[in-house]
Structures are given as C-alpha cells and as structure tokens.
Write a protein that binds this DNA or RNA. Sequence first.
DNA 1: GAAAAGATGTGATTGATGTCACATCTCTTC
DNA 2: GAAGAGATGTGACATCAATCACATCTTTTC
Lengths: 246, 246
Amino acid sequence: MTLKGVISLPQICDRACQTCLDKLCTHKIPLFSALPFEALTEIATQIEHTEYPAGSVIIPLGTVSSSVTIISGGQAKACRYSADGREQILYIFSEGDFFGEQHLLSASETPYQVEALTDTRICQLSRQALNQLIIRHPELALQLIQDLTLRLGRLEQAIQTMGGRSIDARISTTLLDFAERYGRVRSDGIHVTLPLSREGLASYIGIARETISRKLGQLENDGIIESRGHRGLRIIRIDTLRTLAE
Amino acid sequence: MTLKGVISLPQICDRACQTCLDKLCTHKIPLFSALPFEALTEIATQIEHTEYPAGSVIIPLGTVSSSVTIISGGQAKACRYSADGREQILYIFSEGDFFGEQHLLSASETPYQVEALTDTRICQLSRQALNQLIIRHPELALQLIQDLTLRLGRLEQAIQTMGGRSIDARISTTLLDFAERYGRVRSDGIHVTLPLSREGLASYIGIARETISRKLGQLENDGIIESRGHRGLRIIRIDTLRTLAE
DNA sequence: GAAAAGATGTGATTGATGTCACATCTCTTC
DNA sequence: GAAGAGATGTGACATCAATCACATCTTTTC
C-alpha cells in the first residue's frame, strides 16, 4: 500500500498513522483518485461500511436502492437468474470496483443480485451525497464517466466474444482476463487464483460445467495451462492462449 | 455525397424562429435536453455536421478520434470483425443516439466500425468542447452518466440473453426490442420496419443466417409474426413473443 | 488426519445449430 | 414492367455442446 505526501487526519487521530489510513477506504478507490485530500476525508464521513462473509448475498435481487456501492475488500459476483433458474454471472467485482451507478439519478431496482465470493467489505454512499460531491467536484463526474466507459468497453468485448461461435475463444479470453486481473508472473508462467469454481466459470461464460472441465482438460493436455487444485491455475503458454482468443 | 460544413445560428436566419430551431440538431438530442436554451445555441456553433449515404462507412475501424458523435438523422450500425471475418453488430444507433464517449478523456482508437444503414446525418463535438461544456454545465455530466448507465443496462441484458442457451429467446428478445424502437401499433398488430437484413440480424444475434430464416419461418407458421417483404414485419401475438423471451 | 461434503472429471447419448449447395423470392434499375 | 442482382428459404448432413449418470478427486470440518 503506497502512501506518499499524505498530511494529517484530525478526525481519526492526530497523525497519519498506518492504521488510520487503512480505515479510509476512500484512499483505495480509483473512482475518487482525482479528488483532493480534503474531499477524501470529507467523503469518508458519509460512507457506510458493511462486511459480508463469503457466500452471503450482499444485494438481493430486486432491492430498491439509492446508493452507490464500492467494494473495499474481497470479491463479489453480480448475477441474474433466468426463468429456469440458470445463473448468468455479469461481473466479478474486486477491490476498488463499484456498482449501483444506475441509482445516481433516481432510486431504482438493482438489475442484478450481488453475492460475496470471499469475505467482502463494502462502502455505500448515498445518491444525495454523491450528487453533491459531483457538483462540488466536477472532476469526479469525469472519472465516473471514464469508469463507466471502461465497463462498456469490456461488455462490448464480451458480447463480441459471446456472439462468436467458438467456445474455445470464449474460454481463452476469460482466462487471459483473469490472468491480467489476478495473475502473478513467475519464472514458470503466470500463476492465477481463479475467483470462480468450474460451476461459476460455466455461468460466467454461459456454457455447461462439464464443457468447461473438458476444455480445460484439453488445454492442459496441450501443455498450455496447468490446473493446480480447484482454484489454482498456471498459464504456461500465454501466447498460444492469445492466439486461441483471436 | 459527403458535405461538411459548420452551421452557426446566424447563418440560418437572424432570430430564433421555430423553423431554424428545428434545424438545430442540439434540440433533438436527449443528451442535451437538460441544458438551458442559450447553451444549446452555443453548442450548435461548435458542432460539425456531416452526411453519409446508406451503406457507407462513417467511422472506419481503428480511427483515432477525439470527438463524440451524435446521430441526428438516419440509422447506423456499430460492428466489429473477428479474425475470420465474421461480423458482430454491437449497436444499432438511431436519431439521438451518440457514441465515442471513450474519447472524452483522451483521444483514442474507436473500438468498432460505424456504418450507415440508411442515409445518415451526424454531429461531431470535439473532446475539448464537450469537456468545457461539462465544466460549465455539470447537469450535462449527469445526463451523460445516465445515458451511459442505460446503455450498460442494455448490454447487461444482451449478455444474459446471449449467455442463455436458447436461440429462440435471443430472437424473441431482439424482435421485441425492435418493435419497441421502430414499431407502430395498428389494429392488426405491431408493424415494424427492421433496420437489418436477415444477414444483419444474424450478425446482431450471433447466429447463422439460415438459422434466422428457419426460426422466423417457424414463428410465422405458429401465427406469431407475419413477414412482409424483406424488411417488413407484423407482430401478431406479442404476448406469446414475450413468453418466448422469458 | 479421517470422514463427510462438495466439486470436478468422464463416458455415452441426444439434439440443435452450423455449413454447404442450390432453389426461389424481392427489390432495384433502366 | 422486365431483367438482373441480391437476398432469402430449404434440404441434407456433419459437428459440437448439453444432458444424464456416476466415478473420482479436493477441500472442509471436527
């Protein structure tokens, strides 16, 4: 955790100690990165924090809310369920990601359920508070627009991948995406801790669990990846994976 | 057939008469709906207008741009091409829709090619101009955020539909979507002029052209829709279609 | 560390969709 | 309004992923 040029934090304690800084989730949130220091401490007082254990539901489907939620620790999935009960995972949220931007202009129903994948801490900021912040700090609006734009771009990419007929390309794209977000480069390849089980991967990619198993098995046979337990993965030949992803 | 030219208000006439106001694309654009009258005329002087004939390329793939583009008339498709040449249509833009929001913070490559489906008029506003507008009119930022949020919601819906296994659901959803956007309610059902050919529908939905033909034929046999020439469609039993879409 | 619970791997089978080839229909153009 | 170009419909076939059923492997729990 990098802290540079940080001044004092009178509200919390009388000096900028590590403990207090860690409590300020605003420092970890890219959305607020463009704001001046004083604004961050100001925001911090308006934020409501909550913790959820792994597996619990953070936002039940159909909740009417007027808050924007930011993940300040852990991972969560956003998903919808179709009439026959099939789950479709839309996003994997990690530290720093936010959702609920649709409530910014008016309270409304959340379009997806959010569930904790690991123990998760969230910060919630009310519509009113965020709107006031935007009016006082227009650069926050620009940052928000940029973040939304990035997300749009990712969804556009996802739609192209899902629209294409090749399941292999979808899987390769997903693995590359996870490698980039959660991977650690080592001498023998990229080590990734997958955020989802095979079942979860299946819901995310939109195919059957058995198909994921078979396809990953195939990739392992071809020496492209190595499975290390249920959530572990080592990517051996990332260039080959990139080729498969097209 | 491409005529460029900047239109400033005085060039049209010397006062704000209704006829001239109608020519100001700023009045037709939802994105600007929250702005005061003076701002609209101010924006109008900074906009560059261009026309494109049906079938022409408005934004070639890979264009580096720093403008936001608004469709002020006609329809266009945004599409990507995969390595094997398959087209994936991401959006159908109609009057009032905009794209290029990714260029708002820095000039960048367009992530998709935009092609005119009909004769199309566009308005382009530079990054600098739009940024200045946002700073002077923060409500514009909120409107932009809302529009982006709406688009995100639509893409999320699309991903759920594409992730689900049922092709029938995808087709029904698409038809309902088109009915809502382009349909006219009459006594014998909803008459829709499709913006795309069967080939286009196939690229949009992500399936083979032949499959679309067969599925639409099936829907017609079941008395749910009636095909009227290549682009015409009458939706007879919209409730059944809704059931199929789940 | 052993047992139970849960997740994953795998074979056989089925069905739906892509592909190819070509007939037929629509729309455009002159 | 006739001809041609382009778009669409349709049959046959191959292919690939979903499903079902069950074995096997990991992880968790006590």
